[in-house]
Design a binder for these strands. Structure first.
Length: 421
RNA sequence: GUGGGUAUAGCUCAGCUGGUUAGAGCGCCAGGUUGUGGCCCUGGAGGUCGCCGGUUCGAAUCCGGUUACUCACCCCA
């Protein structure tokens, strides 16, 4: 095992890359504030059963992608593979349902799934997500679509598409499932092995199979939205109506199904072409049954999650999100000895005043110090020599213009601050 | 879990059919300017050629394995 490489599917985030992250995180916190969402930070790990019950025993995540281990107390612990189940757990644990409804929460942090890494897919990745708990208002379904869309737009992202569907509820879904199976059954022999394996257990998952032959079979399959119960149909109609009123562009995709068992009614996915095979940059939906499943009283809820790395990849591919490079306000050049002592005092004085000041720590020549200042892209260089100090002055060089002048030490700070504006 | 591609300096990459001291550009350090950046010039540091094994007189080069990266399948953010 290489001690000098991070574990597979993980990455260090630093340098200019980190600046980009911080900028995006700033946008995320801003939009959550204006939309009235409170941040919730849940633990990185939970009891394994939470995910088994929440996400569904037969989902791929639970069956083969979880980082699960037994702790020293014999408990089965799992690194969170997604954010919704922990939020629901916290909602119940802290009796948030007793407070003003709906409860609007957001989270931003790492998730863990044991998968083969690939473009836009990592073992530790980050999600920004939010959940609205305690209301079945279709307007809130729309809000969870609108908010990420607004975020993408704020970031300058253009080439994304919102796909929308309704997968009904436990009332209407069984009837559709039966119809679908009836339709598929005569053709099941000619379908791919994974479709055959899933046919009995979860026939709806066959709908988004990418296999050419399977797609052909399913092209004429019955569509869930034709089988919605009156309640779900009405809900879906209102969602679409609000989307139109709020001018959110979307595409109906009756074959859109989701990998988690907990979804009901509205599901959506935001895709971005050009990310490779992993093209979803955000997804979500309504989960009216999850809270009860986890042990709470029946409570409707809706939410979504955005893959931070994927969003950053998408932004990078469009090339319009680079944050402004940071530059020091001042670099102080000195000649060692007493001049270095005076330079140090000046540097910390400037920093106390909120200015980013730097100096050399490698006993370098003036020329090398100037080069360093240039490399750091310092706005000003202060040259503290014996002569200048005797006169209580320093040379102040404007690195953008190449001009310099003698300035009294007492007013150096003002010169730099004024020059910044 | 399955399949393809890749692995040489901090970064991006050369290195032909195996042949002496493994190269370039960029970056880094120093000098050209005994107190002045960007451009230019000169020099320098820096590499167990991913790792293990095999073939061979001889392997960065061929073969096998392994690990990592990468792309795709599966699945998903």
């Amino acid at each position: 095992m290489a001690l000098t490489t991070s574990p597979r599917g993980t990455a260090d985030i630093f340098g200019s890359n980190l600046e980009t992250w911080l900028k995006l995180e700033g946008y995320i916190r801003d939009i959550c504030r204006t939309y009235g969402y409170q941040e919730l930070r849940t633990p990185m790990f939970e009891h394994t059963e939470l995910f088994q019950r929440g996400i569904g025993e037969t989902t791929d995540i639970v069956e083969k992608e979880m980082y699960t281990f037994t702790d020293r107390g014999g408990r089965s612990i799992t690194l969170r593979p997604e954010g919704t189940a922990p939020v629901v757990r916290a909602f119940l644990e802290h009796n948030m349902g007793q407070g003003p409804l709906p409860v609007k929460l957001f989270y931003l942090g790492p998730m863990f799934r044991y998968e083969r890494p690939q473009a836009g897919r990592y073992r530790q990745f980050h999600q920004f997500g939010l959940e609205v708990l305690g209301s079945a208002d279709p307007l809130l379904d729309v809000e969870t679509i609108l908010l990420p869309v607004e975020l993408y737009k704020t970031c300058g992202l253009e080439g994304f598409v919102v796909e929308l569907n309704s997968i009904g509820c436990p009332e209407c879904r069984p009837r559709y499932r039966d119809e679908l199976k009836e339709y598929i059954r005569p053709h099941i022999g000619e379908m791919c092995s994974s479709c055959q394996a899933r046919f009995e257990r979860n026939p709806m998952r066959l709908l988004d199979c990418k296999n050419e032959g399977c797609r052909k079979v399913l092209a004429g399959a019955p569509v869930i939205t034709d089988y919605l119960c009156p309640g779900c149909a009405e809900h879906f109609a209102q969602v679409r109506s609000y989307l139109d009123v709020l001018e959110v562009e979307y595409v109906l995709n009756p074959k859109l199904v989701r990998g988690f068992d907990y979804y009901t009614r509205t599901v959506f996915e935001v895709t971005f072409a050009g990310l490779g095979a992993q093209n979803a940059i955000g997804a979500g939906g309504r989960y009216d049954g999850l809270i009860e499943e986890v042990g709470g009283s029946p409570t409707p809820a809706v939410g979504f999650a955005v893959g931070v790395e994927r969003l950053l990849l998408a932004l990078e591919s469009e090339g319009s999100f680079a944050p402004e490079a940071r530059r020091p306000d001042a670099f102080i050049v000195q000649f060692g000895g007493e001049t270095k002592v005076r330079a140090a005092k000046l540097m910390y004085e400037l920093r106390r005043a909120g200015l980013h000041a730097e100096m050399d720590h490698l006993s370098r020549s003036v020329r090398a110090q100037m080069k360093a200042a240039n490399r750091l892209n310092a706005r000003w260089v202060l040259i503290l020599g014996e002569e200048e100090l005797l006169a209580g002055q320093a040379k102040l060089k404007d690195m953008d213009r190449g001009t310099e002048e003698l300035v009294d030490l007492a007013v150096v700070r003002q010169h730099i601050q004024v020059g910044e504006e």
